[in-house]
């Protein structure tokens, strides 16, 4: 049950969290050493600049004046939905950069999270229900896989499927990027196929590293739920095993898994970023990595803010979902 009061309070909390996060996002890169303006000028203009040019650049990038003035002007542009221009990709704006890259991340993150949850729940439920041999196998397999870092698996996959193994003179899968060089983006057959091919390795890396956690949790809760009195009563009622499994076991066992999705989300985002970097997948993780290496403050700020907003909203969504799944939960 969800009361309106709860939703209002939650929104206020989220607003406060945003405020704090925005302030941190503003402060953190400015406290790091190095002068971004000089870096831009050195890389883009070979270091030959007049002091006036420096001033113009600084003011346009909100890094002139005292920290306080910077902070105020930062807020003002933020409220206009304007993160300013990027240092590195100047004169492209941060907003436009994020808007062009974020769909890739949403695609990677959304698809892999959904596959991981569905796969984890299915495998865990089966294994907890059957016990015995397949169960012990799943347990060791899952625990082993949970210990594998994303980047390591990503590199192995890349090496094996896109570099080492060659069939009929071509590699099985592309090594990097989101789609092939020679296809035109749009709703055409070649593009879609290329898109899918390029997404296989990044998705596989993410799914394989995150589904075992869900599977293991699901398996354990299924085992616990099977001992519950309501499951015994369901058997006494002469219900089919299928009904017992669906309505009595899984419906209850899935609740802790739903909670864990909220907790795991930040980790999955981190994983997706690493995977984007390894596969040069053009999402905001890849963009962020580039932004950090070239001290692109405005871009970093913009991306961090998006991450914060998405994470907080995702947690809110998970809480609402949980209240929907478990009638005993009262959010008020």
């Amino acid at each position: 049950m969800i009361t309106r009061r709860y939703v209002i309070r939650r929104i206020i909390y989220m607003a406060i969290t945003f405020f704090v996060a925005i302030t941190l996002v503003f402060l953190l890169p400015r406290l790091a050493p190095g002068n971004p303006v000089l870096i831009i000028l050195l890389t883009k203009y070979g270091g030959i600049v007049k002091p006036q040019q420096l001033k113009i650049l600084e003011s346009e990038l909100h890094i002139s004046g005292t920290l306080w003035q910077q902070y105020v002007s930062f807020w003002i542009s933020l409220l206009h939905g304007n993160f300013g221009p990027s240092f590195y990709y100047y004169p492209q704006s941060v907003s436009s950069l994020i808007i062009t890259h974020i769909p890739w991340t949403f695609f990677l993150l959304g698809t892999s999270t959904i596959i991981s949850i569905v796969l984890g729940v299915a495998v865990g439920s089966y294994s907890g229900w059957k016990r015995g041999y397949s169960d012990s196998f799943l347990q060791s397999f899952s625990i082993g896989l949970t210990a594998v870092p994303y980047f390591w698996l990503a590199l192995i996959f890349q090496l094996v499927f896109a570099v080492l193994v060659v069939i009929n003179g071509t590699h099985i899968l592309p090594v990097a990027g989101a789609y092939g060089y020679f296809v035109t983006p749009g709703f055409n057959y070649q593009f879609v196929i290329s898109l899918l091919k390029h997404s296989i390795l990044p998705l596989a890396t993410l799914v394989i590293t995150s589904f075992p956690g869900f599977a293991l949790l699901m398996r354990n809760t299924v085992v616990t739920v099977l001992d519950e009195d309501y499951v015994l009563q369901a058997k006494a009622k002469g219900l089919s095993l299928n009904t017992i499994r669906k309505s009595y076991v899984n419906k209850n066992a899935i609740l802790p898994v739903a909670t864990s999705v909220g907790l795991a989300f930040a980790g999955i985002v981190g994983g997706a970023f690493i995977v984007e970097e390894v596969f040069s997948y053009p999402g905001i993780g890849y963009l962020l990595y580039n932004a950090v290496t070239v001290y692109d403050y405005p871009l970093e700020e913009g991306i961090f803010l998006i991450i914060v907003i998405v994470t907080i909203l995702a947690n809110f969504a998970v809480d609402l979902l949980y209240a929907y799944l478990d009638p005993r939960v009262v959010l008020k």
């Binding site: 009195d229 309501y230 009595y248 419906k251 609740l255 478990d326 009638p327």
Partner: peptide, 8 residues
């Protein structure tokens, strides 16, 4: 007391 399915 625990024989009813809590989510149904």
């Amino acid at each position: 007391m625990n024989s009813l399915n809590p989510v149904m």
